[in-house]
């Protein structure tokens, strides 16, 4: 049984088939990338996993459990965390508060102990902070710890979002175009972080990405999507060189897309 699996998932918006019978499997401990031209339905897959949209057909299986009918927050409780394409941070709070929110699923306190801020809650807060500081160290966010997120540069905001997802200590991490809007150096850092997340933290990564170089460098397997249909999947080289994939990206002229 695989770690995470999409079984024949389909969803349509007002007659437009955004996903049509898409199936794939993600193995534990790998980086699995989804590529495809704009409007191929990549982000829609994430939004369906997160239960932002209801699937019309098919299901997601995570560790032998069907998660396509659970309530949205349960997905996170089971250990799936994500980042967003257009940054969905908690804007009017500090970077550290955002990371602490990532710790939400580990809380054990209730409203009454919190209102009294009992020693137990204090202990829990300190533990959360220790964990958040580890993530800050990991992603070099020290300089931004106590700054309002809204005022941070775009690239840093993306990193904070990655940090928030990591603070959750997920088993599966969904990255929605992690490199978009980042500059060269930031992408270089990102490539290392993603490898470290996989190898040191042992977190499985499912990623939607447009930067083909990044995909090629760090993915274990790749799935190519176009108009909601799977074109091909397999090892990065084979998928990126696949004629149908090239056609989807570039039209009929056969030019190598990895440049």
């Amino acid at each position: 049984m695989s770690f995470f699996e999409a079984q024949q998932i389909s969803i349509s918006f007002g007659g437009l088939m955004a996903l049509n019978g898409v199936s794939f499997e993600v193995n534990k401990g790998e980086v699995f990338s989804i590529i495809g031209p704009n409007g191929a339905g990549k982000t829609t897959i994430f939004n369906c996993i997160n239960r932002y949209y209801d699937l019309d057909e098919g299901s997601f299986i995570f560790k032998d459990k069907d998660i396509s009918k659970v309530r949205p927050h349960v997905v996170a409780d089971l250990g799936i965390s994500r980042t967003f394409q257009n940054i969905e941070l908690f804007k009017n709070t500090t970077a550290i508060d955002n990371l602490l929110l990532g710790r939400h699923r580990h809380r054990r306190s209730n409203l009454f102990t919190e209102a009294l801020f009992s020693p137990f809650v204090q202990r829990q807060e300190i533990d959360s902070r220790e964990k958040a500081e580890e993530v800050i160290d990991f992603l070099d966010l020290q300089a931004y710890r106590d700054q309002m997120v809204a005022g941070l540069p775009f690239g840093v905001q993306k990193t904070v979002e990655l940090g928030r997802a990591l603070a959750m200590e997920p088993e599966l991490l969904l990255l929605d175009e992690p490199s978009s809007g980042m500059n060269m150096e930031e992408i270089e850092d990102l490539a290392f972080w993603i490898t470290d997340i996989k190898e040191e933290l042992g977190i499985t990564i499912l990623m939607v990405e447009h930067n083909m170089r990044l995909v090629k460098e760090i993915s274990d397997r790749v799935l190519a999507l176009n108009f909601g249909v799977v074109l091909t999947q397999g090892d990065p080289k084979g998928v990126l060189g696949h004629p149908e994939v090239m056609q989807a990206y570039l039209g009929d002229e056969g030019v190598s897309i990895t440049g």
Binding site: Y52, H73, D77, F84, E88, L89, K91, N92, T93, L101
Partner: peptide, 19 residues
């Protein structure tokens, strides 16, 4: 913090496991 998260982004709050 969960309350503040809901104020700033419901979608992200749910993705962080906030009911």
């Amino acid at each position: 913090r969960a309350m503040i998260a809901i104020r700033d982004s419901e979608v992200a709050a749910q993705a962080m496991g906030i009911s």
